[in-house]
Write a protein that binds this DNA or RNA. Structure first.
Length: 561
RNA sequence: CGGGGCGUAGCGCAGUUUGGCUAGCGCACCUGCCUUGGGAGCAGGGGGUCGGAGGUUCAAAUCCUCUCGCCCCGACCA
């Protein structure tokens, strides 16, 4: 492509609304423009990147036997009603009616429709297994779109679905996808981890996410530096360091000191020496959740144990416990008590269930008997649940996920097959997603410098940028054109900056756009019959003789992946 | 949905507190000259009615009311 013929609206300054690095650079380099909150236009360069990513996705999906299909974005409501998600999902689903007043929705994902298809077409175990995929638009009315293309209301997703006759079959399909995803992200030049994740409303028991470390990410990932345990904090089962406090049991006067912070300062003890007692109201009634003073209650873990719950109001605390909020503790009442494992050792300060008093030296398991569970949010300084080594926590962008669905969708949509014995059984399913735009954003987040983007070669919009410094110089122009023609004939995608701009402008734009290799053709070098090959990432520049230029360039481009 | 911030030319901003002439600056854009190894220079020029509506006032970008939009933090994230 010729730069002069391509729409590449670069900006010297990023629009002020952009915060994330990838967002700023995508805007500045002319890859995207924003239409409205969470709605993005992909300009020629941006669309090229997405297509290159999609090429890799298709390549690797076909390699595991997945078949590409295309499904509608507009869905009839009744299918979503049958699986219940029409009712479970709230404002996040775009809903509308057609002209006959029939309820419809815009697809946020395609489990329902894929399963509907399977239910109509799959009859025998002989038809299985199947893997169907598409690269298709999804619409979600996000509560808060953010960070450019990282979280949008409309986005393209590679989604695939596996259909198997058994759990073993699902395990196999799952593994095929996990392996394919590793190859995909590696080929895309992304630094990533596969982590344990929460299946959430997708249903099923097992799920993993593929996470690209980046400060722009929305997820916190726990990682063990020793055994490799890696998990989203949503599910991470980290172990807090054991406490060795050994106080005698005594009541302490703590006038008007309610919060852990206030009491810990008042009696001069670390927050970790406290039992934080939270009165929760679940469907079954009130119960007490205990975590250590330095911990946060993990609401998702809690929900898994007791279902939906909420914090008790001040009035409820008083009427149920008989003491004001801030002075409640685990001792002396009969309501159900769930405690985090970390309270199994040591003695603690807890509320006395009496106005203005706390109790020091409380030993869980001795002074009261709780149910032991993992209830806290993983934090730095804790230990790996597998090997006990120290863990670290980092931010990451979710670039892909894989779920074992089991029969959640096939059961409700009656997607069944006849097994060898002629018995009807539900199809065992899995679903697997990748966000190409997130790959692009993660690539930028992980590969940039003060001047712009540094694309991994495999997903760069072009392989090479040819930069004739002065297009009014005949020799420069002739050589640039010849090289452009040569590369194009070799099916190497080259961008020729044929604009009549000064060198500085071209250099700045080239660095901003981030094409991995720059060929610089200037009058100075041509005097010695030389042109320059420059690597965007390292800025290393090498002068080569004109007669060797073609073979040198081929050499560099061909080992790009 | 809760909290905070911001809407003035394509982009970045000043002006708003304390109403007052034709609303300003840098970049970008157009024309000409000149220049060509890191966002050149000179000269000339085009473009906004200040997010929108209503109100106060002799007078509103500026004050008041309502409203729309965008960003950030949180909740949420199938």
């Amino acid at each position: 492509m010729r730069f002069s013929k391509m729409f590449i609206p670069t900006l010297r300054e990023a629009p002020s609304e952009a915060e994330a690095i990838s967002h700023k650079l995508m805007l500045r380099a002319g890859f995207v423009r924003q239409l409205a909150a969470g709605l993005y236009i992909f300009l020629p360069l941006g669309w090229r990147v997405l297509n290159r990513i999609n090429r890799i996705l298709k390549d690797e999906m076909e390699a595991i036997g997945a078949q590409e299909i295309s499904m509608p974005i507009l869905h009839p409501a009744d299918i979503w009603q049958k699986t219940g998600r029409w009712f479970e999902i709230k404002e996040e689903m775009f809903r509308l009616k057609d002209r006959t007043d029939r309820d419809m929705c815009l697809g946020m994902t395609h489990e329902e429709i894929m399963t509907w298809l399977a239910s109509r077409e799959i009859r025998s175990y002989r038809d299985l297994p199947q893997i169907w995929y598409q690269i298709q638009t999804k619409l979600r009315d996000e509560a808060r779109p953010k960070s450019g293309v990282l979280r949008t209301r409309e986005f393209i997703m590679k989604d695939s679905y596996s259909f198997d006759i058994s759990d073993e079959g699902l395990d196999h399909s799952y593994k095929l996808h996990a392996d394919a995803y590793h190859r995909i992200f590696t080929r895309c030049g992304i630094d990533f981890y596969q982590v344990e994740s929460d299946p959430g409303m997708m249903g099923g028991a097992t799920a993993h996410e593929f996470m690209a470390p980046s400060p722009a990410g929305e997820d916190d990932i726990v990682q063990c530096g020793s055994c490799g345990y890696t998990a989203n904090v949503e599910v991470a089962r980290t172990v807090a360091p054991a406490m060795d406090t050994n106080w005698d049991y005594e009541e302490v006067y703590t006038p008007n000191k309610r919060t852990v912070k206030e009491v810990s300062e008042f009696i001069n003890a670390e927050p970790s020496c406290f039992i934080k007692s939270l009165l929760l109201i679940a469907d079954e009634g009130p119960l007490l959740a205990l975590i250590r003073g330095d911990q946060e209650l993990h609401e998702k873990k809690m929900s898994k144990l007791i279902g939906k719950f909420r914090a008790a109001s001040k009035e409820e605390v008083k009427s149920i416990i008989g003491a004001e909020a801030g002075f409640i503790g685990p001792i002396g009442h009969t309501i159900r008590i769930l405690s985090d494992y970390s309270l199994q050792s040591g003695s603690y300060v807890a509320g006395a269930n009496k106005e203005d008093y706390h109790i020091k030296g409380v030993r869980p398991g001795t002074h009261f008997i709780p149910e032991w569970h993992d209830l806290h949010v993983a934090a730095n300084g804790e230990h790996c649940p597998e090997c006990g080594s120290a863990i670290t926590i980092f931010k990451a962008i979710e670039i892909g996920n894989i779920f074992k669905l089991g029969t959640k969708y096939s059961s409700s949509l009656n997607a069944v097959f006849l097994d060898k014995n002629g018995e009807e059984r539900p199809i065992i399913m899995g679903s697997y997603g990748i966000g190409p735009a997130r790959i692009a954003a993660a690539a930028i987040e992980q590969n940039n410098d003060k001047d712009g983007i540094i694309w991994p070669p495999s997903i760069a919009p072009f392989d090479i940028e040819i930069i004739p410094l002065n297009v009014n110089d005949d020799k420069t122009k002739t050589i640039a054109e010849a090289l452009y023609k040569f590369l194009t004939n070799k099916r190497i995608e080259a961008l020729l900056d044929d604009r009549d701009e000064r060198p500085g402008v071209k250099f700045k734009d080239a660095d901003l756009i981030g094409i991995p290799i720059q060929i610089i053709i200037g009058e100075k070098g041509l005097k010695d019959n030389q042109i320059e090959i420059k690597v965007r990432r390292t800025r290393e520049s090498r002068k080569v003789q004109l007669e060797n230029a073609e073979s040198e360039i081929l050499g560099i481009v061909c080992d790009k992946e």
